[in-house]
């Protein structure tokens, strides 16, 4: 006789295999399923509480069982992919520009894998990581940075002259990738009592960011302070903190964009492209989300030129 957990895994596994979710990243699929369970609770509750499924359990209990099964199944897929991403797709050579002493990449990679494993234990952090992870999976940051470096306009100026990164294009792309990977660092210390705006924009207050930075420095010794600061500041509003690094501002935009990114999305005739539409809306809401409007302007032009 199968246990509730097995049944839940079978049920959730079936949802994960649904063809309509095929193109999404693992965390996007997870969000889709959680949303599906929330929206259809009224219909699913009575059916799933029958003897065939979870006899005698109320919806909250069933939801909890399903959620744990979902996290487990998603982690089974996600953790190996994250490890592969960290070990083979994230070139950490750029870190040499940020510290005096040499640190073995293996130690950094292990710390990053441990961080990712920790992040995935917290539901809020998982949610915050969805956009950043999808940006890494779909290569959103890479494609924009490639064009921005070629065009050498505002984004390039901010990265090379203001943030003073002495890195080439590939190294800068890896720095932004690392920033995206570490972005949910703020969630590791965040209380569940975050304000509505903090939850909806993913932004935090600067005092809180300082505390996170302080803790992170002591706990993630192999990651240079500059990289940690870039990741923590990626959750700060640029409108309230004008010193936020260019890599952080870019990571904030790419993470927000990628959260709702749908690869192979069918665009209706007469509608603008998905990226262009998203950036256009974000330009109008830049204050609310704390984005850098000039960066959005440049990314908008890049999206328009490339029909992204």
């Amino acid at each position: 006789m199968s246990t509730d957990h097995d049944k839940a895994k079978a049920f959730v596994g079936r949802l994960l295999q649904n063809p309509s979710l095929r193109d999404f990243s693992e965390l996007q699929r997870e969000e889709q399923i959680i949303q599906f369970l929330h929206v259809n609770a009224a219909q699913l509750g009575p059916t799933l509480s029958t003897p065939q499924f979870f006899a005698g359990k109320n919806w909250n209990q069933i939801f909890s069982i399903l959620l744990n099964a979902l996290y487990e199944l998603v982690n089974d897929e996600l953790l190996p992919k994250l490890e592969e991403l960290i070990r083979s797709k994230l070139d950490l050579a750029f870190l040499r520009h940020m510290r005096q002493t040499r640190v073995d990449d293996e130690l950094v990679q292990k710390q990053l894998i441990a961080f990712a494993t920790d992040v995935l234990k917290k539901p809020d952090a998982r949610r915050n990581f969805t956009g950043a992870y999808s940006a890494l999976v779909f290569g959103i940051a890479d494609r924009y940075l490639t064009v921005a470096f070629d065009q050498k306009k505002y984004v390039h100026f901010e990265l090379t002259k203001v943030q003073r990164l002495r890195m080439n294009k590939e190294e800068t792309r890896n720095f932004v990738r690392l920033t995206l990977l570490l972005r949910p660092i703020v969630n590791l210390g965040m209380s569940t009592a975050a304000t509505q705006q903090e939850r909806s924009t993913g932004m935090v207050q600067s005092q809180f960011a300082e505390k996170v930075m302080h803790t992170a420095k002591s706990e993630m010794k192999y990651i240079p302070e500059q990289a940690l600061k870039s990741a923590v500041d990626a959750s700060l509003s640029f409108n309230e903190n004008r010193f936020v690094e260019a890599t952080s501002r870019l990571a904030a935009i790419f993470a927000a964009r990628s959260r709702s990114y749908q690869p192979n999305m069918r665009v209706d005739r007469g509608a603008d492209s998905p990226d262009k539409s998203w950036i256009s809306v974000s330009r109008r809401n830049y204050k609310y989300y704390g984005f850098d409007i000039k960066m959005l302007d440049e990314l908008y032009k890049i999206a328009a030129e490339n029909n992204w």
Binding site: L15, Q35, F36
Partner: peptide, 28 residues
């Protein structure tokens, strides 16, 4: 210029609408 930005702000932290449908579970 008005509706979409307003809709975006008001949707807040809500996840996108699920691509899944109840019909997908019919046979289960």
């Amino acid at each position: 210029e008005v509706f979409l930005p307003m809709k975006d702000r008001s949707s807040g932290d809500e996840t996108e609408v699920s691509a899944l449908k109840m019909d997908d579970l019919k046979d289960m």
